[in-house]
Write a protein that binds this DNA or RNA. Structure first.
Lengths: 129, 129
DNA sequence: ATTTCATAGTTCGGTTGCCGATATATGCCG
DNA sequence: CGGCATATATCGGCAACCGAACTATGAAAT
């Protein structure tokens, strides 16, 4: 599963949202670095609905504009939970490997490798761009 | 960055490997669920070398068979570290959202949502397939 | 002796999912 | 009145991955 798809499921995990609401939620959840394009969003929405991971909850007409609300299905939630485990496992595996890297300083992992709050664009100390 | 690419960088983080060695390392690191296809592997290797994330360390001829060893560059290591932070952030965001999900039992997160060891194929308790 | 498997790499066609642009429509703000 | 935020639909193109076929050697199994 790719990042945009993962973030769409994530956005819908807390509550049903309509397309544009998903765009905003994903922007927020990703810390501002993933802005879903219409082609990505509606393509993914159709695909995920086909796969049964999400469902149309209801359709609302607000001021002439259509709002189609999507809800995460139970199967979608289970898929997302599995995917979270997968991401965590991948992150741990990479970290373990990086610690064995020639030149790696074992005791410095809590400085060099952050565990949350990515601080986008911040280079690892001592690691050249 | 997609999963196969991430795992290739991960495999090379500890030490240089040749193509076939990467396939085995990725299989191991992913807990057996990612078996790199040749098309994926050699395509990714060329691309990553172009991007400067990996470098050819040396070429060896063992019993008529060529072995081309690749090494993770400093820039590749920095990219991988950033990617690990990204994965962790995504995982946390999804978990936070899932806890707000209608029907989610707050105190049950350590049962329902595992933090490591995905246990592939295991459904979330109470969640239908 | 021959087949099969593991190792090791190359190439090519096909599919999927994402990107980017365009289009449509309404209401608000300057 | 033009631009912006809201809201969805659609289309062409591309990048990355998948799957299969091919070459080649040595070891193990039949």
């Amino acid at each position: 599963m790719q990042e945009p798809t993962f973030l769409i499921l994530t956005a819908l995990a807390a509550r049903p949202l309509h397309g544009y609401g998903i765009v905003q939620a994903v922007l927020d959840l990703s810390g501002g670095d993933v802005k879903l394009r219409p082609g990505t969003l509606y393509g993914a929405l159709d695909r995920l609905a086909d796969q049964g991971l999400i469902e149309v909850e209801r359709e609302e007409a607000v001021e002439g504009r259509l709002r189609r609300y999507y809800r995460l299905s139970d199967s979608g939630a289970a898929t997302l939970v599995a995917e979270v485990g997968r991401l965590r496992q991948r992150a741990s595996a990479a970290e373990t490997q990086l610690r064995q890297r020639p030149g790696a300083v074992p005791g410095l992992s809590r400085f060099a490798v952050f565990s949350a709050a990515p601080a986008r664009g911040a280079a690892a100390p001592g690691a050249p761009a």
